[in-house]
Design a protein around this nucleic acid. Sequence first.
DNA 1: CGCGCAGTTTTTGTCATACCAAACCTGCGT
DNA 2: ACGCAGGTTTGGTATGACAAAAACTGCGCG
Lengths: 236, 236
Amino acid sequence: MTAPPSETSRAADSLIATFERQIADGVLKDGEALPPEREIVQTYGVSRTVVREAVLALSNKGLVEARPRFRPVVRKPGYDAALQAAGSVVNRLLNEPSGVRNLFDLRIMMEAALVREAALFADKNQISRLQQALADNERAINDSAAFFATDVAFHSVFYEVPANPVLPSIHKAYVNWLSKHWMKMPRFPDRNRLNYEAHAAIFDAILLRDPDLAEKALRDHLDDAWQQVRETFNTP
Amino acid sequence: MTAPPSETSRAADSLIATFERQIADGVLKDGEALPPEREIVQTYGVSRTVVREAVLALSNKGLVEARPRFRPVVRKPGYDAALQAAGSVVNRLLNEPSGVRNLFDLRIMMEAALVREAALFADKNQISRLQQALADNERAINDSAAFFATDVAFHSVFYEVPANPVLPSIHKAYVNWLSKHWMKMPRFPDRNRLNYEAHAAIFDAILLRDPDLAEKALRDHLDDAWQQVRETFNTP
DNA sequence: CGCGCAGTTTTTGTCATACCAAACCTGCGT
DNA sequence: ACGCAGGTTTGGTATGACAAAAACTGCGCG
């Protein structure tokens, strides 16, 4: 039965749709492995070619995680899966002249908005988490690796203030995309101290519940960080 | 010569990488069609299976545009290709309870930041474009289809103010993701008039160069729009 | 000389089969 | 009980085949 490949589109598409539905409906639970390819072949009466194509497509969409020789594992996607899907293209764009600049500017804009929100709406719990992160950051001034980690952690708190699950994912994506540039930057204790003081200034502005001051402090901090990037990579 | 498939990973991956490089380096120019599969087979000494897998992967990454029975066309990715890659996952998330809410909140946050920037930095040219868009919007009050279009156009101007090419792409992505919900919403001239007036209020605040007022007007506008969404779909 | 249409050639989508090597499972020996 | 050796799946790839859609070709007509 050499199936006629023409109805609306490819046979693979319907298989893909089937699996997407099964994942969405929980028939295929998260963390579970897909059935073997040959079993799918028998179940749906398609060739292995189509099955492989479908699985690959699901893998590219981030719905399953397929290591080379293992069974694909279902991954119910969160918001970071969505951003991760964009990753490969973004990485290419980062190699173009103004790619890093564009993304960094976007980050400045978003974090400016976030610190405004934090200044206006952060509750006691969130402020104490900021304080904690700031203290960790200060303690790490002399350990550049630890400083980098606490730096990221401090900024990440802002992405959690609005209680929107998309935001932490965005922050993770930023860190992923830009970290390879950050990593290559020289980090010295005195540089770290300046950054810590910038963080402290932002925190103080939030304590004062002054969104304009907080935004200014954040922008100064990130503009300065950009200057460092610029000097390091000579990218105008 | 039944090639041994074991060196570091899949043979397909190296083919994918090869094409990515060729696209990045301009060997495969934008808009051009990929070579026929059998030609690739001969050129790189792999099987058609691998070629198809690679092409499919490129298609999923948005580097080539592959309609069902046509030759894949190279698409040098811009920022919207990146966001488009995230599309399929986002669409799934939009079907979950608070998915639309999360995305809409994010949009409110971003546009709030954008109108602030516009209030502070928009130049004459950009303000006149806003005015133009606003006028178009007013003229379309009695034509709901046209109103929708001019509504989108008005908001899109804000995404162009910071001259960051990422932003228009983000706006496009928003429109794509959320438009299917907007489309289903009832739109009447009186409703349109309210929305137009909200747009006008934002514009006025920008003329006054008052970022706080502009942000407030924008938030009122979008909160109101969210109320409409909520009433229409009963999604809390 | 250009243009449209029919027939021919490519090319894609799919199926089927085969093989290798890595992962997995099973049972045996200790 | 436990670990290891061997057999059994299963994924990755290659090859060959075929139907249908696209692309191409050349012919006839204006």
